[in-house]
Each structure stands twice: as C-alpha cells, then as structure tokens.
Nucleic acid binder design. Sequence first.
DNA 1: GTAAAAAGTACCAGTTTGTGGTATTGCCCG
DNA 2: CGGGCAATACCACAAACTGGTACTTTTTAC
Lengths: 213, 213
Amino acid sequence: MEAIKVCIVDDNSQLRSTLQEIISMSEDYRCVGTMATAEQAIREIPDINPDVVLMDINLGTVESGIDCVRALKPQMPATNFMMCTVYEEDEKIFEALRAGASGYILKKTTPSILLHAIRELYEGGAPMSSQIARKVVAAFSQQNAQRENDQEISKLTNREKEILEWLSKGLTYKEIAANLFLSPETIRKHVYHIYEKLHVTNRVEAVNKFFGR
Amino acid sequence: MEAIKVCIVDDNSQLRSTLQEIISMSEDYRCVGTMATAEQAIREIPDINPDVVLMDINLGTVESGIDCVRALKPQMPATNFMMCTVYEEDEKIFEALRAGASGYILKKTTPSILLHAIRELYEGGAPMSSQIARKVVAAFSQQNAQRENDQEISKLTNREKEILEWLSKGLTYKEIAANLFLSPETIRKHVYHIYEKLHVTNRVEAVNKFFGR
DNA sequence: GTAAAAAGTACCAGTTTGTGGTATTGCCCG
DNA sequence: CGGGCAATACCACAAACTGGTACTTTTTAC
C-alpha cells in the first residue's frame, strides 16, 4: 500500500519539524513538503499534489490558513485539508469547513491520534468533535427546514409548480409555452395564480420563495 | 443534577424494553415514554417534552422515523433527536439530519456508549461517524464553494455587486434608484453591464448566478 | 498627468411582464 | 346534478425590462 502523502503548513518551525517527525515515523505516511506561509503553500502545494494537508488555522500573516484552503481546494478537490488549531475555536473551524476543509485536530493531540485522524480523513471521513459536528448539522439542516414547512409552495398545483420550475430558470413566457406546448397566455395566467398564492408580485420574488429564501 | 428525560420510539417491543432497561439503569437518565408507531409519537411526545428522543429510523409503517422527526422538530426545537439504525445507511441518516435530527447511533452499540452518546447529544454535540460528518460537511460547504470561485461575479465592480444584491431581492429599477438616491436610468445602465459581465439576458438568470446556481 | 475604467444621467425603440377581465372544457365531490 | 376548481386560451393596457447610443464627471492606475 502506498504511503499517504502529507504536507504541513505552519509558521512555527518548531512545530513543523515535530509534525514532520511524527509523520515520518510510520511507513504508511510520508511528509512530502512543509511550508511556513500561505503564499508559499498556495504556490507549491498544487505541484506537490499531496493527499492530505495539515494547515495551521492561524498563519500569523495577512492570509490565514482558511484563506489558503479557500484558494487551494477549488484547484485540487481531491486533496483533503485538515486544520490544526491550539484550542477549539468554534467559529474559525466552522469557517474553515465552509471554505473547503474536511476536518481538524488540536495541536496537542498525541501522535497516534494524529496519524489516525489523517488516515480517517484520507479514507473519506471528517474527523471533528461532536460539538463542531452539531454546528455543521445545524447550519446545514437550517436552510432546508424552511423550504419544507413553506406551506405556501405546497398550495400550488402540480402544473403551477412545474411552471415555477421553468420560471426560476429564467425562461420567458414564450419559451415556457414552447416547452410545454401551450399558449404563452396560459403560462401568464398560471404565473398570475402563482403570484397570488405566494403573495409576491414579480418573478424574482417568486423564484426566491421557490428556493426557500 | 436533573436526570436526562428520554423517549424511545421503536416498533420492536423487544428492543424498546432493552433500551428502556439500559436507560433506567443509571440515575442520570430517565425513560419518560416509549412509543411503537410514528402516529403515537407525534401525538404524545409534544406533551411529554423529553430532552432526547431515540428514534428508530425504519419504523415499519407508512411514516418513517424521519417523517416523525420532520413533524416534531419544528414544534420542539429544544428537543434532541437521535436516530437508531441497524447499519450505517448513509443516505437515510443524511436525510434524517436534514429533517432535524442531531445525531445517530447503531443499535448494536454497548450500553455505556449509548448513554454517553445521549449525554453528548444533550450537551449540544452531534454524535455521528466521521463518514457521515464528512457527507454533511461536503453538502454544507458545497453551495458556498461555487459562489466563491465564480470568477464572473468577481469581475463586477462594487457598485454593480451592490445593485445585483438589490436586484436579487426583486426590487424594480425605480425602487433600487430610490434606495440609492440615483436615477432609475443609472440603475438600468449598471444592470446592463451586469448582464454583459455575467453573460445573461434577464434578472432571474442574473440572480441565479449571484446565488451560485 | 494622462489614459482608462467606473459611475452617473438621459433618450429611443421594441419586448416582456404584471394585472385585470372573460370564456370554455373537464373533473371531482357532495 | 350543480358548484367549484384546475387547466386552457384570448384580449387589453400600463408598467417594467432589454439593448442600444451618447455624454459628463469621478476614480483609479500607470
């Protein structure tokens, strides 16, 4: 089995070498690069193409580790980013996950737990505390929750919902009519009813309701 | 310290009494009700007002445990729902979290782990496997990810972005103009440029881009 | 300091919406 | 059987939108 390729990004050189040592201890892991700044990381990591990046969340400089993830993740979606923090800074961790990180560890964890977390991440898990998980779940179920209990939309007939669907893609009446083999006038009438039922007065408002906003 | 009030919903009477026994073993937990069907649960749980509900994910009947959470959670947002499953049915667990559950456990877990998970949930955690957490994180970071790297939007000037913001709330040119103390004609011109830069031809398409769709 | 963007205003012509009204057909429910 | 609703279609008018062009004033960048 190939070793998991790991990069370390941290401005503390002491910590960098400690982490590097831990990773190099086991044959299943290989440290393929260390960087001290966000700029360096953004420049070098795409070429190195590691499996996992350990990223300090507070990179001292202007650009934080979070910015760094934001910049890198879109270029390399297959790479897993794990944030390293000194204490459980909920908000920051939350931000990092939103930016594209997939997990985090505390810097004070033991070598064996660290290695285990790296493997977990590599295998598609998301190592994090139950507290953070809860925040993520909450943020995630929220948006959908509203959409569900929006009884207004459920009052629409199937035909109306269908037309709202097209409407929210930005088609004109004429285009929708062509798609459904109907008269544009009929579409207009349906839309008229949709607006009544949703209590809105134009397309954008209707579309916003449709998407639960 | 008050005991954590727990309700159990499961159609298997054998399992109900097993769970009840485990919970009653410790003084820190109290079983305040057991139900066999979703209907019964939806009827009785709001009055009982437990801290935690252990909910079978496959309730055999027409209504699943997920539907049950969907019905109950909005009424009692302070109550924590924990799904119980036989094996890791990712999709279902995911659905349940989306519906308002905050964690889950496998039915085969040991009593001590079960109790620990209940406490974790009660204290604001979200007990779940690292795999599921990853799915949730992915689903949650997704929407924002696209918005960020949509370079088209970043090409807009600040003024244009500002106007797009109003536009996506469904205001007319005249209304936006009034808000910004400008002529409607000016708004029109800005929108004209916005459409050019985003390669769209109407409001709804522009709004969709704005929201990363 | 000059050239290039960005911001603001105005006007034209044509198209699309928003808001009403009317009318026909089919279907379900009491 | 009759009333009500959904779906279809047409008309009409005002309002709003779209795609141009044209011109001035700030800001920004080199």
